[in-house]
Computed example of a mutant assay.
Amino acid sequence: MVVQSNSIVDGVYKITLDEARLINLAISKIKKNDSLGSPVRITHSEFSNTWGIRDNNLKRRLSDIGDELIQRTIDTISTDKYTGRKIKTRRTWISKIEYNMDDIEQYIEITFSPDIEKFIYQLKNNFTMFEIENVSNFTSPYSFRVYAWIYKYINFSSNIKDGLHFTDQITIDDFKEMIGISNSYEKYKYLKSGVIEKTIKEINKYSDLSVILEEFRIGRSVKQIRFVFVKEKATILKSLSIKI
């Protein structure tokens, strides 16, 4: 089970596919009562079996993933309770990584940074939880990001109508920033075909959600989007006329 604070789900960060796999697997191994600062050990066989990877050079691959991940940052957005101003805080994901390179039991051990621990350990509220099996066949980091963000809304009573769940509307610029591609896909039509449609297709094919895209225009230009979804596999969703 992957359990993470909604601050992480809403966070702004860029990540590769293998880094997304490693982070999600590490978070899924954290137990409810694990103490802050507890390292998370992932064996090479766990990583390959969870994601269906067959790589004869997995030792080198995981070493490279760790070397890149320890440099990655995530921005979280909060509101100052006195001024109401939005505050962006940048944190690093990982404070330490250890590699056991023995041939008998090879593993990588991750210690999340102290600033991130509060978002993934001993959570009481404002978190999103999903089965790792529902993302185990994803082949794009955007699928991980968008799936978790959509899933956040599944328990929001204000975001359901007539049995359909829906996300809040998000501007195109904010969506691109969230998934780490602010400087790419200048035209929406390329973002839609290159990222959004492929992500929806993968989520619908491999996860427990059925999702469609809804666009909001000013004039002829799409300025905001949102996702409408149901938790069960429902191909009928594709032909629904959305009136929310």
Rank of each mutant, 00 (worst) to 15 (best):
N134L: 00
T73E: 15
I172N: 05
D64N: 15
D75H: 09
V230F: 01
I242M: 07
N159F: 02
Y206L: 05
K223C: 09
S221T: 14
Y147T: 04
N183E: 10
I97Y: 07
V12D: 12
N125Q: 07
K238F: 04
I65L: 02
H165G: 03
I236E: 15
E46V: 08
N56I: 08
S136A: 08
V40Q: 09
S184N: 12
K88C: 11
Y99H: 04
S95L: 02
R90M: 09
K14L: 11
I160C: 07
K192F: 08
K152A: 01
T16P: 03
I23Q: 00
E98H: 15
R21C: 04
I8V: 00
N155E: 12
G194M: 07
S48I: 04
N134P: 01
E197C: 08
N6E: 11
S28C: 06
K96C: 10
D75C: 11
Y107R: 11
F47S: 03
Q106P: 10
F47W: 05
F138R: 08
S210Q: 06
K243V: 06
N204C: 05
F47H: 06
I74V: 11
W51G: 02
V211M: 01
E177Y: 14
G11F: 03
D173C: 13
K192A: 12
I236T: 10
F130V: 06
A234F: 05
L191W: 09
I170Y: 08
S221I: 14
S207F: 02
K81T: 14
E131T: 09
E186R: 07
S48N: 07
G180F: 03
R220Q: 09
S38Y: 06
R60Q: 14
R226Q: 07
S7I: 05
D162S: 11
S28V: 10
F119Q: 01
I244T: 13
Y190G: 07
V228F: 03
T139K: 06
T92K: 15
S48T: 13
F227I: 00
Y185F: 14
K96T: 10
F127E: 05
L62Y: 02
I154V: 12
I97T: 03
L240N: 01
T139G: 06
I196S: 00
I8L: 07
E117L: 02
D103P: 10
D80P: 15
S35N: 11
E215A: 08
D34N: 12
E68T: 14
T92M: 09
R60S: 15
S143M: 00
Y188R: 06
V211S: 02
D102C: 07
S157Q: 10
V2Y: 10
I196V: 07
I244L: 15
R41P: 14
K31S: 11
S157A: 05
L36N: 12
Q122W: 08
N57M: 10
L237P: 02
I97R: 02
Y107H: 10
F175D: 03
